[in-house]
Computed example of a mutant assay.
Amino acid sequence: MKIAICCRKGSFSDYWLTYCEENGISYKKVDAYQSDIMKQIEDCDAFMWHFSHLDYKDKVFAKQLLYSIEASGKPVFPNFKTVWHFDDKLGQKYLFESIKAPLVTSYAFYTKQEALLWANKASFPKVFKLRGGAGSTNVKLVDTRKEAVSLISRAFSRGFSAYDPLASLKDRWRDYRSGKCPFFVLLKSFFRLFIVSSAIKLLPLEKGYVYFQDFIPNNDTDTRIVVIGDKIIGERRGVRNGDFRASGSHILLPDASKVDMRCVQLAYNVSQKLGLQIGVFDFVHDKDNPLLVEVSYGTDPDYTECEGYWNEKLQFTSAPINLPKMIIESFIQNSSN
C-alpha cells in the first residue's frame, strides 16, 4: 500500500510521516491545495489528510475532496461517515437524534419568528452555540430571555463572525491568570482585537439559523472519550473558575479510574453504529445521567497524559498513548481488509 499524505505542520501528518519512515510503509507527500491533486494521487492506494476547521481554504473544499477520492474507490482518512458532521453541531443534532443517542436537549430554528416564539416560552439559562468552532469558541451561556432575543435578532440580520476576538481574549486572560497561557499568547490575542488576519476575514459569517442547548448545571468537569477502532481513550477535563465550559480549559484529569464507564460504553456503541474511523465525544452529566454534547474527528495530536486504553470489552490496558499512531495503524489495518 502506498499512502498519499497531505502535510500540515502541527497536525497528525507530522506523526504519520515519521511512522511510515520507521515502518517501511510507502508514502507520498501531496498538496491538496493544488488543482492537480487528483493527478498527484493517481499512483497511490489511499489518502490521509488531517484538515483544519479553522482554515478558510479547508472549509471550502476539504470534505468535498475527501468524498470525491473515496468515491473513486480509494480508502481515505477521514472518510464520509467520520467527517460529514465535523464542526457542524446542527448536523450532529439530527444525527444523534436519528439513532436515539442521549444528546443534551437541543433546539434549532431557521426563521426569526419561530425562534422568538420558542424564546418567549423557554426557561433559562440556555447555551447558545454556532454550528462551528472548537475549544468552546462560539459558545455562550444565555441567562435571560432578553439575551436570547438579542442573539436571535443578530442571527437573522448581520450574523456572527466565526472568530470572536473579544471572547478569545477573555479566555486567554483567564488562562494566563491561572498559569496555563504564556504572556506572548495573551499579547497576540490582544492585538487580534485590532488586527484581523486575512484568513479570518475570509471565513463566512454564521447567519440564517440559531441553535441552543439546555444548560446542564453542576458539572465541574466533562468527560472526553476518543474511540479509534477497538481502542478507547478517556479522561475528564476541568471547568475554569468563573466559567461553565471544560472544552479549551486545558485542565486535564487523566485518572482512568475516575472516568464514567457508561461514557466509555456509550461512545463505543455510537462510534460502531455510525461507522466512525475516529470519534471524539464530549459528555456532561445531568445529575447522574451521561449526556452527549458533541462529536469530532479533529482533535489535538496529544493525549500522552492518558494512562492507557480500554478495548471493546471495556478491559483496560496501561500503555503510553500515541493518538496519530493509533489512527494510522487502524487505517492501514482496515484498508487492507
Results as ranks from 00 to 15, higher is better:
F51S: 03
S318E: 13
R192N: 08
N79C: 03
N241H: 07
C306G: 09
A155D: 02
K258M: 15
N334R: 14
S153R: 14
P204C: 10
E329V: 13
D220I: 14
W310K: 05
I327V: 10
I332C: 08
K59M: 12
G248A: 03
L151E: 07
S271F: 07
V210R: 01
P102I: 11
G238E: 00
Q34N: 15
D164P: 03
F12Q: 04
L252R: 13
K112P: 03
Q277A: 08
V280Q: 02
P324D: 04
T221L: 06
L274S: 02
K273Y: 09
R224K: 14
D214A: 09
K180G: 13
G275E: 07
G238H: 01
N269S: 11
A167Q: 12
L276M: 12
F128C: 04
V226M: 00
E22M: 08
L66Y: 03
M38K: 11
E235H: 15
I69K: 01
V210F: 04
A167V: 02
K231G: 02
A119K: 09
K126A: 05
L166M: 13
L65D: 01
P102R: 05
R145A: 11
Y67T: 13
Q113I: 15
D31I: 06
I216K: 05
I278E: 01
K112S: 12
V30R: 04
K188N: 14
N289K: 15
G132A: 12
P301W: 05
E147R: 14
E70W: 09
G298W: 06
C306R: 14
K207S: 10
Q92E: 02
Q92G: 04
L203K: 15
K313H: 13
R154D: 06
R8F: 00
L266V: 04
T223C: 12
M1D: 05
V295C: 11
K39P: 00
V30T: 04
I216D: 02
P254R: 06
